[in-house]
Every structure is written in structure tokens, then in C-alpha cells.
Design a protein around this nucleic acid. Structure first.
Length: 584
RNA sequence: CGGAGUGUAGCUCAGCCUGGUAGAGCACCGCCUUCGGGAGGCGGGGGCCGGAGGUUCGAAUCCUCUCACUCCGACCA
């Protein structure tokens, strides 16, 4: 068994710092932006090799392996079967699914010595579907759920935040095969539950949210987000129900049902210095909620389409691109195109006499007496009212939800939080099985295309997300289940004191025997250095052995989360710790 | 790929403007001293100053090109 093997239950669960170098850094590496990246570098968990490529050092690997272990246990418990597929994948399978052409430069492609085309796997739908069509012949073999924990490569445009958005990363991906939708629903639900168990066991505060199905395609989809301020995604929650959705998807309702009656006259105003909503609001003292901005995008027919949202709202590009009138992917019109079609620049657009088709957001449809551009440079209309001044065009949900919006399920209002996406489950349907002709024979001997689900967890990202959520000014505060060690054993002046030496060695042996993962700091350094390192790397429990306490037959025990020591008699330490560790 | 910026010791950075042959702190090695919150002293190892070309008697420093990396935008576990 190699030294440093991090799998609990093996003989090498313990370690001495003299044999387990802690490459801690006092100073913060200049280019690390977020706490997890900084702390992983400072704690000596990872080292960057090139952009988006990291070596996991022994300390970091112990954490990664613990997360993997939890994932594996819960996948197994949920009835999934582990396998392992190659990282290198032949182009022909990707051509069969159509993704060789669809997938952008994120797919790293290359040739082998025979000039055959390959790619590094960013995901494994093609490979698993190919496997399934060869291995699965009968409906009797269904349903089945295969998973692997393996390295993925995605040639990200901009890798950042350390392991949170690396190009090479560890992912758990699972793929299930079914005869019918009911069976898929069942496995999907089982995976949903398994994911909740996994993230709960990892000690993370998380939420499962309804999500967009994105490029992978399919019907139902949920994302699992670890809640943290540095998260890249925005998630909307209801205050009064369990509604939760990615802001990309969350339905935006108007904040009232009725449009008020007009109370102002329509008025053409000179606004030479107002090219943006902010300037208009500032210069004319209009509430921003009473303004409308007009965004022009490419239409599905190649013409232009205007999308109108309230001045204080943001266009949701995912929603916009899904409209039948709008080209997908979404493309904003250039200033030249707008001038050619409207005769005014982008700062002076509005619904009145707009010569191109328009779609208005629900919140715009219930406005009265609002202000918008006049489609003449330097002029705005104030006091615009639908139906009185112009007909109400088509209404759609076009915007991002904001804090305080009514919840789409009618219960409560929305709050917005930041999240880190650590898991994503999809119902794929027959997208891949149909393209690649993956069928089984049903009970009538007829070939039926299998229905698929897929389920991913960013295992290496979970490590980063855990730190984002659990750190303080001294360093990492690991949730017990994924800490690299459970206990740090720190002798004070070990060289000088035979009593300390003796006591610490005895404790070390006892802890090993009790199955506690302990790191003995036998470097004979000054106490401050040991304390600082121990806090930086975030070990949940610290046991300090010094002359001071030994005089009374006691040692100091302190959890990483507390500032106070507990004095525990020498012969009770192991029992005390075992009790505490079993509680979590 | 567009925009901004940075490349000097393992890490954090100074030196560059105004060319004269390489520095500090931390880390590392040795000795001494110290020892309950990242001590102090003395000594030491470590850098083709990202690379190539040019200007010059002389280039980390000035010029050109190149490469790498970081940050800001669209993707995703």
C-alpha cells in the first residue's frame, strides 16, 4: 500500500508531518481570485501546471478521494453500476450523434499516428450509447444505470478559479437506459435523492433547482447548487414554498395584473443628452420602473425583432432565444442595422411607430404613462399608454426575475442567491439512442429505442465549493466527512520534553488503533507555526500536548470551529474524539 | 476570439522611466539562540531577468517580433 493512501479503512490512514510535507504558503498567490483557489494553493492541496490543469498534491488528493468515496457509495446504494470508459474517444461516434460538428472548440480534437481523428472526452453520451447498443439486447436487461468517476477534458475558453473551472477535471457521470418514460422517471427520482444524500454527507448547504436543459437536450432537468456568494449562477427561491429555479429559467410574472388607466398626455420631449435609461432617469426625474428599453435582435426570418423590457429589468437571453420569432442563438443587431431599419440609433428606440415587429415583456404590458425612445435621435415620448396611443403587441416572458418578484407558483415572492453548480441531472429521452440506433427487443420481439437519462457531478468542483462555503480568515474549515485528516496531534516542545514525547506517541498509537485519521506534527517547530498550518489546512479537531496540561494529566482538545480549548484527561482523549467523530 | 494587463529565485515583489553585468521579504540548507499563535542572529544554496532578433562599447532596462499567464465578455460539472 503506497504511503499516503487516503482511503479510510486501509493501514495508512495516519501520517506524520515529517513524512507528509505540508507545502503551506504564508503569502497568497497573486492570481487567485476566490477563497477556495487561494486556500487550496496556500494549503498545498494543488499546484497549477498550465492554464486549467492542476496537480493534486497528497493533501488535496485525500479530500478528492473522500468525495469520490461518498459519491461511489451513494451511487452504488442507488443501484448504479460502476464502469470506466476511455478518455480518448473516436470521432466516428461523435459524427454519428451529430456532435462532431455541433460541439465547438471546447472539444479538443487530434489525430493518431494513422491520421485517424479522436477527441478528449468532455462527456460520454456517445461512448455509453455505443456500449449500450452492443451490450443491451433485451428489455429484460432494463432499466440499467451505468456510472464512472473519471477525468474529463473541456478546452474552456477561460479557465479560472482553480479547480472550480479547470479544463481537466474529475467528474462522476452516470447514464441510465429505459424501456419507457415511467421507468426513466423512477431512476431520475432515485438519482435526485442520491444527489441530495451525497451533498448532505459532504456537509454542504445546497439546493436542487429546476434548470434549463441547455445544449445536451432533453426534457426534465435539475441542477444542484452549493450556496456561496462567489457562485457563478443566480438562483431564484420562493420565500413561502420550495420553488427554486435557475434565473435563466425562472418564470417572470408581472408585479400586477391590471394596467392602470392613463393619467398623462402623450408628449414628445427633446432628450439630446439621454442615450441610456440611466441618463434619462437622471435628467428627467422619471422613476426607472416607468421607462421601457428596446433591444433589437435578429429575427428567425433574418429580419429584425424588437424586444421591450422595463428600464430596470434585464433581458433573459435564454428565454428570448426560445421565441419562435427570434433567431437562435440570440444575436443583437448592430447599430448600422438598427439605423437602416428604424432611422434612429439604439439610444432613442421605443414602441411608438416602430417599423419592425416587437414583443413586449409582461411587465411592460401592464405599464401606463411610461417613457421610451421616439425612434428619432434625441427625442423620447413621455406618457405613453397602450391601446390609447398604440396597440399592445405580442406579450411574452422576456426578462430575468429580480428579487421581490412574485413566485411563479403563486406562493410568496422570490429571493435571489448565488450558487455553484456541482451537479446536474437530465432526462435525455431518445436524443442519442435514436441518432445511434440503440434499441432493445421488447416483449413482443419488436425493436424499441431506449430512453436515456444522464446524471453528472463535478467531483473536483465539489472540493472547491466546500471551501467556498466553509472557510474563515485563518483558512479552510472542512466538513468532517471530507477533511483530509480528522485530528491534528500537536506536541509542544517535543524535543525538550520526554513527557510530551511519550504522551504524544502513546496517543498517536491509540488513535491509530481506534481508527482515527490523525496527522501528527512531529516537525518540532514553534507552536505558532503548527497552529497556523493546522488551521490553514482545516483539520476539524486539534489535540495539543504540552508540559502545561500534562502536569494535570490532561491535553487540550479543540474543534476547528471553536476558539476554546477543552481540557481532557489523557486516557479519555481517544474515547472523547471517537464520540465526537461519530456524531457527525 | 475580442478588450486590458503582467512576465525578474519555489512564493510575494523591487530594480526598468534616466542602459554599466542581479536585489529584498518569505520558503529552503547549516550553526547558534529562542520556544503556547507564522521569533532572532550569523553563514549558505538557488535566477541564460519568458523566448528570439535588433540598437549599443555594454541591455533585466530601449525597439521589433513571438510565447506564456492573469483579468473583463459568450460556455459548463
Amino acid at each position: 500500500m503506497p504511503r499516503g493512501n487516503p482511503e479510510p479503512g486501509t493501514p495508512n490512514r495516519t501520517m506524520r508531518t515529517s513524512q507528509f510535507p505540508l507545502n503551506t504558503l504564508k503569502e497568497t498567490p497573486a492570481d487567485a481570485e476566490i477563497p477556495s483557489h487561494r486556500l487550496m494553493l496556500r494549503a498545498g492541496m494543488i499546484r497549477r501546471l498550465a492554464s486549467g490543469l492542476y496537480t493534486w498534491l497528497p493533501l488535496g488528493l485525500r479530500v478528492l478521494r473522500k468525495v469520490e468515496r461518498i459519491v461511489r457509495e451513494e451511487m452504488d446504494r442507488a443501484g448504479a453500476l460502476e464502469l470506466l470508459m476511455p478518455v480518448v474517444q473516436p470521432a466516428e461516434l461523435w459524427r454519428e450523434s451529430g456532435r462532431w460538428e455541433q460541439y465547438g472548440p471546447e472539444l479538443l480534437r487530434f489525430h493518431d499516428r494513422h491520421n485517424r481523428e479522436f477527441c478528449l472526452g468532455p462527456t460520454h453520451e456517445e461512448i455509453i450509447t455505443d456500449l449500450a447498443r452492443h451490450q443491451l439486447r433485451s428489455y429484460r436487461q432494463l432499466p440499467v444505470n451505468f456510472y464512472q468517476i473519471q477525468t474529463k477534458f473541456r478546452d474552456e475558453i477561460r479557465p479560472r478559479f482553480g479547480v472550480m473551472r479547470a479544463r481537466e477535471f474529475v467528474m462522476k457521470d452516470a447514464y441510465s437506459f429505459h424501456l419507457d418514460q415511467a421507468s426513466l422517471d423512477q431512476t431520475y427520482q432515485a438519482m435526485h435523492e442520491a444527489y441530495c444524500r451525497i451533498f448532505r454527507r459532504c456537509g454542504l448547504a445546497f439546493r436542487a433547482v429546476a434548470a434549463d436543459t441547455g445544449a445536451i437536450g432533453g426534457s426534465a432537468s435539475h441542477e444542484f447548487h452549493v450556496l456561496a456568494d462567489t457562485g457563478e449562477d443566480a438562483i431564484a427561491f420562493s420565500t413561502d414554498s420550495d420553488y427554486a429555479a435557475n434565473v435563466e429559467l425562472a418564470e417572470a410574472l408581472p408585479d400586477r395584473n391590471e394596467r392602470p388607466e392613463p393619467s398623462k398626455e402623450l408628449e414628445l420631449v427633446d432628450t439630446p443628452d439621454a442615450r441610456t435609461i440611466a441618463e434619462l432617469v437622471e435628467q428627467f426625474d422619471i422613476p426607472i420602473e416607468q421607462t421601457v428599453k428596446t433591444l433589437v435582435v435578429e429575427g428567425a426570418d433574418g429580419g429584425l425583432v424588437a424586444l421591450l423590457v422595463r428600464g430596470d429589468h434585464e433581458l433573459n437571453e435564454v428565454k428570448a432565444a426560445k421565441l419562435p420569432q427570434v433567431a437562435s442563438p440570440l444575436r443583437f443587431a448592430s447599430e448600422e442595422e438598427i439605423r437602416a431599419a428604424v432611422g434612429a440609433g439604439p439610444g432613442s428606440l421605443g414602441p411608438v411607430k416602430l417599423p419592425i415587429p416587437m414583443i413586449v415583456d409582461r411587465s411592460v404590458a401592464v405599464l401606463a404613462d411610461f417613457a421610451a425612445g421616439a425612434n428619432i435621435d434625441g427625442k423620447h415620448w413621455f406618457g405613453i399608454n397602450w391601446e390609447r396611443d398604440l396597440a399592445l403587441p405580442e406579450v411574452a416572458d422576456l426578462r430575468n426575475v429580480v428579487e421581490g418578484d412574485p413566485s411563479p407558483d403563486g406562493k410568496g415572492v422570490l429571493t435571489i442567491a448565488r450558487g455553484i453548480e456541482v451537479g446536474h441531472i437530465f432526462q435525455l429521452g431518445t436524443k442519442y439512442s435514436e441518432a445511434m440506433d440503440a434499441t432493445v427487443l421488447d416483449e413482443n420481439g419488436k425493436a424499441v429505442t431506449m430512453i436515456m437519462g444522464c446524471y453528472g457531478i463535478g467531483v473536483s468542483r465539489v472540493v472547491g465549493a466546500a471551501i467556498e462555503q466553509h472557510h474563515d480568515d485563518k483558512g479552510i474549515v472542512w466538513p468532517a466527512a471530507i477533511a483530509p485528516f480528522q485530528v491534528a496531534l500537536l506536541p509542544m516542545q517535543m524535543k525538550k520534553s520526554a513527557a510530551v514525547r511519550e504522551a504524544v506517541e502513546r496517543l498517536y498509537t491509540q488513535m491509530q488503533a481506534a481508527g482515527i485519521e490523525v496527522l501528527l506534527d512531529d516537525r518540532d517547530l514553534r507552536p505558532g507555526v503548527m497552529f497556523a498550518d493546522c488551521e490553514l489546512i482545516g483539520i476539524p479537531w486539534r489535540v495539543v500536548v504540552g508540559e502545561r496540561g500534562l502536569k494535570e494529566g490532561k491535553v487540550e482538545v479543540r474543534p476547528r470551529t471553536a476558539g476554546e480549548n477543552e481540557m481532557v484527561p489523557l486516557d479519555e482523549v481517544v474515547g472523547y474524539l471517537t464520540g465526537e467523530l461519530n456524531r457527525t
